[in-house]
Amino acid sequence: MKELFPPKQVLGFVFSIVLTVIALSVYFLDMSFELAMTILLITAFIQAAVQLVVFMHAGESKDKKSIYTTLYYGFFIALVTVFGTLLTLIWGYY
């Protein structure tokens, strides 16, 4: 039975629960918008990394480089789309 629960994955799960709880603090505690967004950004990206590395084994095969390149490129495009759109349609608009 024990072999079915590898410590790495159990720890990963506990860690993601902890991160969720930390993220929840922005709801329960009274804090500035800036701090709250910082907390959310950090917890969300760490959680994503935990999923990708610990659970999805992104780095286990020979195609590690291709996989990470794809992921970085994807995140880059997503961030450019999000921030570029906001810059164009909201922040930079007057």
């Binding site: 992921l71 994807g74 997503a78 961030l79 789309t81």
Partner: peptide, 17 residues
Amino acid sequence: WIFLGAEIALFGTLFAS
């Protein structure tokens, strides 16, 4: 994995919107 890259772009667009 490459398909998941496309999915990142898809959800990125949804978040941008």
